[in-house]
Computed example of a mutant assay.
Amino acid sequence: MTTTKDTQLSETEALRADLQMTRQHLADTVQELSYQLNFPRRIKESAANAGHRAAEVAGTAGHRAAGVAGTAGQRAKQVPALTRQHPRAVAAIGGAVALGVGAAAWIAGRGK
């Protein structure tokens, strides 16, 4: 059987707990607002984050470039053998490049 005194204690404890939760919520809100209004700090953090992301992207790009360079180097080593195997194709490609360069020079000369 509960008495009036027990009920009052339970209500008081509930109110104290509610008050504590409200205080904590208010403290969190004030802390978030002060962070939002601290522009210099937020700008520094953004700049630092951007720097870290740029470094990560640069590192990834460097690894990719190294892989591509290695592949290109391997292909470049194969060129002499391929030119011996397909001399007509090489001559045709060389002629097409020479024709393209000549046409570009002619067009550039006409514009002057």
Score class of each variant (00 low, 15 high):
Thr3Cys: 03
Thr4Tyr: 04
Thr4Ala: 09
Lys5Arg: 07
Lys5Leu: 05
Lys5Ile: 05
Lys5Trp: 01
Leu9Phe: 00
Leu9Arg: 02
Leu9Asp: 04
Leu9His: 00
Glu11Asp: 03
Glu13Val: 02
Ala14Met: 01
Ala14Ile: 02
Ala14Thr: 04
Leu15Gly: 01
Arg16Asn: 05
Arg16Gly: 02
Asp18Glu: 13
Leu19Asn: 04
Leu19Lys: 04
Leu19His: 03
Met21Gln: 12
Arg23Gly: 00
Arg23Phe: 03
Gln24Trp: 04
Leu26Ser: 08
Ala27Arg: 10
Ala27Thr: 05
Ala27His: 05
Ala27Lys: 09
Ala27Ile: 02
Asp28Leu: 06
Val30Met: 05
Val30Thr: 06
Glu32Gly: 00
Glu32Pro: 00
Glu32Lys: 08
Leu33Asn: 03
Leu33His: 07
Gln36Gly: 00
Leu37Phe: 14
Asn38Arg: 04
Phe39Gln: 15
Pro40Ala: 10
Pro40Ile: 09
Arg41Trp: 03
Arg41His: 09
Arg41Gly: 08
Ile43His: 14
Lys44Pro: 00
Ser46Thr: 12
Ser46Trp: 09
Ala50Met: 10
Gly51Phe: 03
Arg53Pro: 00
Arg53Leu: 11
Arg53Lys: 15
Arg53Glu: 14
Arg53Met: 11
Ala54Val: 13
Glu56Phe: 05
Val57Asp: 06
Ala58Ile: 10
Ala58Tyr: 08
Ala58Lys: 13
Gly59Trp: 01
Thr60Met: 06
Thr60Cys: 01
Thr60Lys: 06
Thr60Pro: 00
Ala61Asn: 12
Ala61Phe: 06
Ala65Trp: 03
Gly67Phe: 03
Val68Asp: 02
Val68Phe: 07
Val68Gln: 02
Ala69Ser: 14
Ala69Val: 11
Gly70Ser: 15
Gly73Trp: 02
Arg75Gln: 11
Arg75Asn: 06
Arg75His: 07
Ala76Thr: 10
Val79Cys: 04
Pro80Asp: 07
Ala81Asp: 12
Leu82Gln: 13
Leu82Cys: 05
Leu82Trp: 08
Thr83Lys: 02
Thr83Phe: 00
Arg84Asn: 11
Arg84Met: 14
Gln85Tyr: 05
Gln85Glu: 15
Gln85Pro: 00
His86Val: 12
His86Asn: 14
Pro87Gly: 09
Pro87Phe: 05
Pro87Val: 09
Arg88Lys: 15
Ala89Pro: 01
Ala91Val: 04
Ala91Tyr: 04
Ala92Cys: 12
Ala92Arg: 15
Ala92Asp: 15
Ile93Arg: 12
Gly94Cys: 11
Gly95Lys: 10
Gly95Gln: 14
Gly95Glu: 12
Gly95Asn: 14
Ala96Lys: 14
Val97Asn: 08
Ala98Trp: 03
Leu99Ile: 14
Leu99Trp: 07
Leu99Asp: 15
Val101Asp: 10
Val101Pro: 01
Gly102Gln: 13
Gly102Glu: 13
Ala103Val: 12
Ala104Gln: 09
Ala105Trp: 06
Ala105Leu: 15
Trp106Glu: 14
Trp106Gln: 14
Ile107Tyr: 09
Ile107His: 08
Ile107Arg: 07
Ala108Gly: 10
Ala108Val: 10
Ala108Cys: 07
Gly109Ser: 15
Arg110Tyr: 12
Gly111His: 14
Lys112Phe: 11
Lys112Leu: 11
